[in-house]
């Protein structure tokens, strides 16, 4: 989670506290997190994600200046010039600098869009699941409306109407994916609101807000956090798709826009498409691996019961 805050330094946002996950008692949490860290696939995921974050953070240091400016002759192939290890593109821009600065955009949009869908999904799902009745029926219909609209098409329409800024892109991607979170949270709340410990809290005069926040939410969050990692991976992909179509912020370089720009040279300079494409594939795979690990660490059914 630290990585979300650091990768999005220019667009900083408050982080939800994860302390309640660790407050699980020593005996169990120790073994849980230990097994989480020991899983080779999770280690592989972290081994990719952590350097990516570092690259995103250090981009202005490693590659100072605007990555969109021409710095060398066009179309130097990778390895052709020691100063430009990954070559240059059709306009003589440094591909390595583009990748580093693109990581900032891809990762921060991915993280922000995931956060936005989790936030909206939590609010909608918790309200619908906890209160039920009319509120539930209305919110479920609204959620279904968004769920049945093809999410990429929705994103294209919103960005076309709202203009290609980071905020609009985050909104566009988040609106398309919040139904997954909302449905998950609604199901968790529906079952947890009838749990005995919630009954006990009600019998003692706990208010709704306190019950939702202190009794139900901590028990409903683990599957949501797992879903968040999947959402982040798909947000990275959607953002790349939008940039590829030229719907990204024109003043910023992103992996998708690099592919879009390099696509016409696919025959002669394939590496202009392949390198950012590889980065997208790699980062999505890594985020998914970390998410699978989270699922295993947080799912009580997969966890060793003492």
């Amino acid at each position: 989670m630290t990585f979300q805050s650091s990768s999005a330094r220019p667009l900083s946002f408050p982080l939800p506290s994860l302390s309640f996950l660790r407050r699980r008692p020593a005996s169990r949490s120790g073994s849980t997190w230990a097994s989480f860290i020991r899983d080779p696939f999770v280690i592989l995921g972290f081994a990719v994600v952590v350097p990516l974050i570092a690259l995103a953070i250090l981009a202005p240091v490693l590659f100072p200046g605007d990555p969109l400016s021409t710095v060398a002759p066009a179309l130097i192939p990778p390895g052709g010039n020691a100063a430009f290890p990954l070559g240059t593109d059709t306009l003589g821009r440094n591909v390595a600098a583009g990748l580093a600065h693109g990581a900032r955009i891809s990762l921060s949009i991915g993280a922000l869009a995931a956060l936005f869908s989790v936030g909206l999904g939590l609010a909608v799902g918790a309200t619908a699941g906890y209160f039920g009745g009319l509120a539930d029926r209305i919110l479920v219909r609204v959620t279904e409306l968004f769920q049945t609209t093809p999410s990429f098409l929705l994103a294209v329409v919103i960005v076309t109407l709202g203009g290609p800024s980071v905020g609009v892109i985050v909104l566009a991607i988040g609106l398309g994916s919040f139904p997954i979170v909302a449905r998950l949270v609604r199901a968790e709340f529906r079952s947890l609101k009838n749990a005995d410990f919630v009954m006990a809290a009600r019998s003692q005069g706990f208010g709704n807000w306190r019950i939702v926040r202190e009794e139900i939410l901590p028990n409903a969050l683990p599957p949501v956090l797992t879903t968040a990692s999947v959402l982040m991976a798909s947000a990275i992909l959607t953002e790349s798709g939008l940039s590829f179509l030229g719907l990204g912020d024109p003043n910023l370089v992103s992996w998708g826009s690099m592919i879009g720009a390099g696509r016409e040279m696919l025959q002669s300079a394939w590496y202009l498409t392949a390198i950012p494409g590889g980065m997208i594939a790699l980062s999505i795979l890594a985020v998914n691996l970390v998410g699978d690990g989270l699922n295993e660490a947080l799912n009580p059914r997969l966890r060793n019961r003492g």
């Binding site: 407050r23 005995d196 006990a200 003692q204 706990f206 208010g207 202190e214």
Partner: peptide
């Protein structure tokens, strides 16, 4: 007040005993 049947289901698994009792007092 009420005492419930299931000693496993009637206590919030994510809160310590002190927290559980403290919240009850705060609310009251």
């Amino acid at each position: 007040q009420m005492v419930f049947q299931d000693p496993y289901g009637s206590l919030n698994p994510r809160r310590s005993v002190g927290d559980i009792l403290n919240a009850t007092l705060v609310v009251n």
